[in-house]
Write a protein that binds this DNA or RNA. Structure first.
Lengths: 218, 218
DNA sequence: TATCTTTTCAACCATCTAGTTAGACCAAAT
DNA sequence: ATTTGGTCTAACTAGATGGTTGAAAAGATA
């Protein structure tokens, strides 16, 4: 394959995955129509099969891509942080940005979880594991240092990820509700991506921070 | 209609809705097969159409039922509580029980949110509103009394509901993960329904509690 | 220009599925 | 015994959908 051809392949492939992400997020695996994805990507259906494969291959590519991106961004941000609090903060802020800006991230993950991870390929599971570890280690470290209370790290993870994904995925419902009931419009229901991250970080850190600092464990 | 007939209607109808709840939770709206629901309910497909209606009517009935049950239970529990902290605690514990024991609750809600509430009938929206108010008022009251910090009540709601639904819906993935990696089995990933409620309540209350009590607002 | 490879397309098909229909069944009322 | 009203069923249909294919276009190479 020439480099020009390779680039073309890369470009179409990426266009298709981007379109597929949106459609899968919007309609779910079963609700998504391959024809619609092709149309949204502006390519013929056969091209899609030629470039990537059948519907399942397409979905696997999409979900692995979404999770890998999120895990990459989050892990980098956590690694760059100084101290446990900042690590948690970075984790939350980047996750908030990821779910807030890449609008398909949260719906795809939520649906996948709702289905019991039926379509989760191992590669995607691994990416989830990276996310879990990044936060788990930061919390364990903080507890070790006596900065955090001895909380259940997994529950904290659920809390962060749950609130951020829910808030992001909720948006259409909130908006519709605001349109239908303009009189009870509530500004606190419409925060910017960064405001959401800050609000969650504030709550989570308050939840786990050790306010009666004793000597660190050992 | 005779009372016997009425009872028969009630019974089949309920059986169908129960079966439909499971299938919709498991497969989602588009993934669910009407034939499968009928089979799961042990009735002929035509009976299902006779008793309830088409697939959409079935789904509307299911989601409204699920949300109404949850809202009912939660509202009763909150009303019975004394003081803001206890209201929050009751809210969380009952919600945890509802999502933890009625295993289809969380998946159905998560999918609905992921789809942007496309299939949410007004009746279901109202039930969601009741849930939101129950918590919102309790938090506002606590802030008013200076017991809670001036937090964003909606974000707290996202946090509670997000973590509980995520934890509940997660269960199959956690279990599969534990089976595949028995060496890193983590007890904190497998809490009982009540333990989950307590853990979340502990975290949330720590997050919003006012640790430097000043004079109440006014 | 001729040739070869990669990429795109429109039309097609086998299968699946939501929804319908015509009638069987059954209990109670006459 | 027969009618009546409600409940249920097997079998069917019309339409949609995932996936395929053979040919044509585009582009590189020589």
């Amino acid at each position: 394959m020439t480099t020009a051809a390779k680039q073309a392949h890369e470009a179409t492939s990426s266009t298709i995955l981007e379109a597929a992400s949106k459609v899968f997020a919007d309609k779910g695996y079963d609700g998504a129509r391959v024809d619609e994805i092709a149309r949204a990507a502006g390519v013929n259906k056969a091209t899609l099969y030629y470039q990537i494969g059948d519907k399942e291959a397409l979905y696997h590519a999409v979900i692995t891509r979404v999770l890998a991106r999120t895990a990459d961004e989050v892990c980098i941000a956590v690694a760059e942080a100084n101290g446990c609090e900042e690590k948690i903060r970075h984790f939350i802020n980047i996750f908030a940005r990821q779910t807030g800006n890449m609008r398909y991230t949260a719906p795809i993950m939520l649906r996948e979880i709702a289905s019991g991870g039926r379509n989760l390929p191992q590669s995607a599971m691994n990416e989830m594991g990276r996310l879990l570890s990044a936060l788990g280690e930061s919390i364990a470290e903080g507890i070790q240092q006596g900065l955090f209370r001895p909380v259940n790290g997994f529950m904290v993870h659920m809390m962060i990820v749950g609130s951020l994904m829910l808030y992001s995925a909720n948006e259409p419902i909130r908006r519709r509700n605001a349109e239908n009931n303009p009189e009870i419009h509530n500004a606190s229901h419409f925060l910017s991506t960064d405001e959401v991250g800050d609000a969650v970080a504030d709550l989570v850190l308050a939840a786990i921070r050790n306010n009666e600092p004793t000597q660190p464990n050992q």
